[in-house]
Simulated scan of single mutants.
Amino acid sequence: MRITELPIAVLRFQYQLVRTPLELIEDRVVSRMGAEAPARLFYERSLGVLDATVGSALGDPRLERRGSALVDRSDALSRAAQLEETATQKKAKADAELAASREKVVEDRDQAHEAKKQGVEEARAEAEQRKRAAAEEARERTAATKRQVDEVAARRTNAAEEIKRNEQAKIRAAEQKVTAAADSKLKDAQAKRDEAESKRAQANRVEQLADVEKQNRQAKRAAKP
């Protein structure tokens, strides 16, 4: 590690010490809240912003990605909760309007019972139509909210899978690099071994030729009178 990197390493360690109590709070208190509880979403988003900011400042991509992912998750769940709350309020309003309409229909029926029975039947049919329309609208809004929540969850899942694929690709690339380096060293060693064997064989042949030549000279000297 270079000397200039020491302050960054110290700051990262100090941040881990600071974050430990926050993790304890999250594990023992926040995790017991509902997944979409406003207090939990606020806490997780604040923690994510803190991680992303510190990760960016300290040059820690992993911490920055973790913080950004936590912020995105909290924002997505918060939007989903708001949409669901809005849908619930609109449905309650529609139910109240329906109840008011029913009361009005009953009142109109009582007032018109003796005067005109057909008018009462038409009012009842109109009320039922409004009821069906309100119920259908509420179902459509609930379905739209569910689709939005599912889309947020799918995007979060896809992002996590993409990060996993990238990490696996990096690991495979590193493994291939190490394997290629090992193969290269093995080939070099084999080439040097072959070269040594060739030189050894050549030296043996030269030695054998020298022995033969020596024996020939000795035989010639012995043959002279």
Rank of each mutant, 00 (worst) to 15 (best):
A123M: 10
Q168L: 15
E151H: 13
A135M: 07
E140A: 15
Q111N: 03
A169K: 09
A181G: 07
E121W: 10
I171A: 13
A160F: 03
Q129A: 08
A169D: 06
A173N: 09
A112I: 03
A133E: 14
S184C: 01
A182K: 15
K117C: 04
E114A: 13
E103F: 07
E167C: 00
E128V: 00
A115N: 14
A154W: 04
A160K: 15
A115T: 13
A144N: 09
A135Q: 08
V178T: 12
D108M: 03
A174R: 14
Q168F: 04
D183V: 08
E103R: 15
E128Q: 05
A182I: 09
K104D: 08
N166F: 02
A100R: 11
E161C: 02
R156Q: 14
E151M: 11
E121C: 05
R130M: 08
R156F: 03
V120N: 04
A135I: 00
Q148K: 11
A154M: 02
V105F: 06
R124D: 01
G119R: 05
R165Y: 06
S101F: 01
A159T: 02
R139M: 05
K177N: 10
E162C: 01
Q168K: 08
E140G: 12
K116C: 14
A100C: 01
V178K: 13
R124P: 00
E107W: 06
D108T: 10
R155M: 07
A169H: 03
A127C: 12
A123L: 10
K164Y: 00
A135R: 10
A153F: 04
E175R: 07
E140N: 12
R165E: 08
A135V: 06
K116S: 15
A135W: 00
V120Y: 06
H113A: 14
A182H: 06
R172M: 11
A182L: 09
N166L: 12
Q168N: 13
A127N: 04
A144S: 11
A182S: 10
I171G: 01
E137W: 02
D183C: 02
A138P: 03
E140I: 10
V120D: 14
Q148I: 02
T142N: 06
R139S: 03
E122M: 11
A181K: 09
T145D: 13
H113C: 01
E114N: 11
